[in-house]
Design a binder for these strands. Structure first.
Lengths: 252, 252
DNA sequence: CAGTGGTCTAGACCACTAC
DNA sequence: TAGTGGTCTAGACCACTGG
């Protein structure tokens, strides 16, 4: 017979709950060291696996990180605000700034591991662009870092014939970026739609974004449309969920 | 000496990777049964804890669910599209429909466990409403279900003096809901801003939303402003991340 | 009632960090 | 070098699901 409480939660959950409460109450705060495996084994008189299981709960909730050889620590959370409409206003890119420069004025935002080439469009991309299945598209993959920390992965797709022979196919797309080049072609984006999904990251994403366990990612799929409502670009982004707050403003 | 590969990943990761690949390739698909602990122990000749650890990776990624006494299954994912701007268009609530009815026409959307009362505003709420700290506000908590499945938790806050003596304080707010009542008071919402965050759920939310492990939640904080830009309502929502796609449309 | 996943113990060896 | 977390074994008892 167990402790004979009518329906007591498992030990590891109670330990996790104690730690969670200590964090919520401020008794332990950002960056503080959390009691480790050995501490918990002594304090609660449990086996190592049980102590580990308790910690793994908090790790998978993303409120704590384990650092090998060192200890377990309360995670800090300092997200960047990403303003949907404002950052895509025409004034911005028509004056020669790349749109991601709107996110973090003056901070060390930089792009990384760029890859450009023509491919056959995946199904959801050809659909979004209104092209036949597997139509040729120009794909631009890149990674954004802020202060050295990887924040998001982004892949743009444009109809191959539209982009052919322009700076859109170059590593440096020039002042104002892709959207300014599209405008020069008479295909300036006028409307945007963004679709947002949440999920846990794949191992590849964990690696490329340096995610710790318990960190979800945001998938943002943005479609850029001209004034005539033809789709000229689709941008598929994967954001570190602990690094962003998304903001959207609109009218009734 | 281990298998002497220079830097081979741990066994449990390799097992997880095999299963992930089988799912990605379609060899195993939605609802299918995944090899269980005993299968993995035999097939890979590992101890039970190792097989469990491999499965726990996939469970925490949200790609499979474990059902006690039965087995482990590939999760199905069928999200609901929630259209930010459109669902809040004035025509909708001014014609007597509650705004959440815009999400799921004809489907069994219903509200649940409603709780209404005056409280002192939490810090982030008083800030959003432009009120002094701990000002009195009317709070409305509720839960939404679709086809019986809980989908989101929502808590609205309105300045107490504004809501006093109106149907906003009632369980049934009448045709068109809160926003129609505000309009009658000459405080019709004209602008909205929504802030989106992602995180792993608390145990309470796991319970109230029936979330399985590896499911993140979306926090949406919406502020409703009048044409004169005074904030009249703040709605703090927590959505089941596996149940929603958020969509926002806007112009350049 | 056989099989499943859930919890827990008591060990072991390893890689890494910090002093 | 002492202490940390990471991986792994070989058991045990339990609650639950399914035929």
């Amino acid at each position: 017979m167990p402790t004979s409480e009518n329906d007591s939660p498992p030990v590891y959950r109670e330990i996790a709950e104690d730690l969670r409460a200590a964090i919520a109450s401020g008794e332990l705060s950002h960056g503080d060291r959390v009691p480790g495996e050995n501490d918990l084994m002594k304090r609660y008189r449990v086996a190592r696996a049980t102590a580990r299981q308790a910690l793994s709960v908090l790790i998978n909730e993303g409120i704590v990180v384990a650092i090998r050889g060192s200890g377990v620590y309360v995670r800090t959370f300092r997200p960047l605000r990403r303003h949907g409409p404002r950052r895509l206003s025409r004034e911005l890119w028509s004056t020669g700034r790349a749109i991601w420069q709107a996110d973090a004025a003056d901070r060390g935002f930089e792009t990384d591991s760029i890859e450009i080439g023509n491919v056959a469009a995946p199904e959801h991309i050809s659909r979004a662009l209104g092209l036949p299945a597997a139509a040729p598209v120009l794909r631009r993959c890149r990674r954004y870092r802020l202060d050295g920390r990887p924040m998001q992965l982004a892949t743009s797709y444009l109809p191959a014939d539209l982009a052919a022979g322009t700076a859109i196919g170059e590593a440096d797309t020039g002042p104002g970026g892709i959207y300014a080049r599209l405008a020069e072609l008479g295909q300036a984006p006028a409307h945007f739609t963004e679709e947002i999904r949440v999920r846990m990251p794949t191992p590849t994403e964990v690696d490329r974004l340096h995610l710790s366990a318990g960190t979800p990612v945001l998938d943002v799929l943005r479609t850029a449309l001209t004034a005539a409502h033809s789709a000229v670009e689709v941008n598929e982004m994967t954001l570190d969920g602990s690094a962003y707050i998304l903001q959207y403003d609109f009218d009734a």
